[in-house]
Design a protein around this nucleic acid. Structure first.
Lengths: 352, 352
DNA sequence: AAACACACAGTAAACGTTTTCTTTATAATA
DNA sequence: TATTATAAAGAAAACGTTTACTGTGTGTTT
């Protein structure tokens, strides 16, 4: 209780050998050490419950086994899922993740970045809003290994695990159209990042490709600044978006929501205005967070594989850190449609 | 790009002073240093973008600014919320939390504990299933500061922020009874931890105190072993519990679910069996996670303040670490009822 | 028998700090 | 003027490792 932790030289003394020998035994180097000596040292180390002091190890230039992770918010179930995968992968390979939520504040993001840099983490997993080249360049100028995830970075030179948001959005809108919907609105939070831009682009293109007119009046953008609790904020934002939408003269047939959390807020608010989902209005989201299945009506959505993203990103980073060969350092995951009950099928002209 | 980080002696050389002086300036000690020298050193440090090497600092016995946090699972929104509070409090006071999910595996819990111990974190925030005295004693035998949270630890000597589960459960059942329900079932995951025991106890006692017979047949216990994704598991477990319940000859009036996530699974499964909530069966949960408000019907539940728990626990720990006075080191938070739409009011004999 | 290779072990330097101990110059006091 | 206190700064030890360098014996090759 309160005693000082045993050191390598405590062991050395008890075993009547030099600290060098102890170090060699404990590190299992291929430097030859007599069997009996080795065993003796090992035994004493165990008895003393010796734990190496990582700080001195690090000081000698050892590699940290910490992985910095920067995400928007742990409160968002999408990221919670992703982190859970990252954590698992890290623990398996004996690293420990340090996860930092930036709450979409670049000030906080910078602070976390500095902290992680100072800690000399072995690598970083980063999902940032700030996808500007200069930012990314400055990031890579510290010789720190990192892989970007979640956002679209396909045009850049860095390791990344991203997602085909454009296609996802295109498919979602196409699905709505196939279900017989014509007047399709797009409700979204500020289009401030690549992923949202892609979704917006996909929405417009799918409309046009299917002979529907893009109507700027049908895109409703709210402004959320303070993202304290992202999950709940996005939900609240969904409600707010519906209130904005209800001010227009006519209602659309269907709504494309920027993500599931927003979609759920949208459905909730529609319902409490006696507008039935999907009978009066259909709603489709993006992400496929687990809540989508739990609510009533269950949410039709585009699956974005959070867990897989986490696993792949962590794998890629750890492989890079350990100098392993990396076959594909720019993974782009593909969307799949999760058909549930928030979209009404007006025609049965759907083909499988 | 790839250059070695500047050290204190780089600064010393450039400033033509000794490293001791540089250290004194940088640490802002009250050891006298000439103003011009001080400014010169500061200027050079800034120019070099000097960051102290924490490892050597720690090696010299400095205090770590890391806080270890052990929770069951980050995937559970209750803990996500709690962690978010902890993170905020820590960052504000310039600490960095390292959160570890144990997934209810004591092996993993042990591993994390060892890792945190080795890292010599400044303190720990712990929610463990293993509330045995011997475990807690061994924990405190490392001279490590920690505060326990979330579980019930009121009979022990350690710092803790807990919650009155007994009262919460008692109030929940009492509420159901006041709403006119008589046949009240209890659906739960294994009663393997203090909090669940307390909830069970409160359930039984409230029944008896209100002249209702406790019927062992009305408590349904599932067994979930592998808790990989706790959140979803508990949801699935809710569904499973309903399947078990449906095997009995009669259905109860109301269900007390061990927590919100389970309650939501229960509601979902009831609905898909054409059993309406709350008209056919009422359901009440515990936790008040945000999803409860989002689903349909919205979930009536006992509020357990996750965010507050996180804030208070982190505050208490950091105060302890910094040697501040602590007024109350055994905080027990009180429950409040959140009335929503998953409980039917049969009589209007409710008084406010 | 000389030369060499190798198993085995210890010494000491180095990593980047903090801090104790000296040292020197200057100002304050007797 | 002699003594003492204090400001200012440097030298060096220490924190716990790893590792390059130095030795020793012992066995193997010429």
């Amino acid at each position: 209780m309160g005693k000082k932790a045993p050191t390598i030289s405590d062991i050395a003394k008890l075993a009547n050998v030099s600290i060098a020998t102890v170090s060699r035994v404990l590190n299992n180097t291929n430097y030859p050490v007599k069997k009996e000596v080795r065993e003796k040292v090992l035994k004493i180390a165990k008895e003393l419950n010796y734990k190496p002091n990582i700080f001195s190890k690090m000081l000698k230039g050892g590699m940290s086994r910490e992985i910095g992770v920067i995400i928007p918010s742990i409160t968002n179930p999408f990221y919670a899922q992703l982190i859970s995968a990252v954590e698992k992968e890290c623990i398996n390979r004996d690293y420990v993740p340090i996860v930092c939520s930036s709450y979409n504040s670049s000030k906080l993001e910078k602070k976390h970045l500095d902290m992680l840099l100072q800690k000399q983490v072995a690598g970083m997993l980063i999902s940032t809003i700030n996808t500007s080249k200069t930012f990314l360049k400055s990031l890579s100028s510290y010789n720190m290994k990192f892989v970007l995830f979640d956002q679209n970075y396909e045009d850049l030179e860095y390791d990344s695990v991203s997602f085909d948001f454009y296609k996802s959005s295109y498919l979602a809108v196409e699905y709505l159209i196939k279900c017989g919907h014509k007047d399709i609105a797009f409700l979204t939070a500020p289009i401030d990042r690549k992923s949202r831009k892609m979704i917006y682009k996909g929405y417009k293109q799918a409309l046009r490709d299917n002979g529907l007119r893009f109507n700027r009046k049908r895109v409703v953008i709210s402004s959320i600044k303070d993202m304290e609790f992202q999950g709940e904020r996005e939900y609240e934002n969904g409600k707010k978006l519906v209130k904005m939408l209800l001010k227009s003269e006519t209602l659309p047939d269907a709504i494309v929501a920027i993500n599931d959390m927003t979609a759920i807020g949208i459905i909730k608010e529609l319902m409490s205005n006696k507008i039935d989902v999907p009978n009066d209005i259909s709603v489709i989201g993006f992400d496929n967070i687990s809540i989508g299945e739990m609510i009533n009506p269950s949410l039709t959505t585009m699956h974005q594989p959070a867990y897989k993203t986490g696993t792949l990103a962590a794998k890629m980073l750890l492989d890079r850190i350990e100098g392993k060969e990396i076959e594909n350092n720019k993974i782009i995951l593909q969307p799949t449609l999760i058909e549930r009950n928030s979209v009404k099928k007006i025609h049965i002209k759907l083909r499988r």
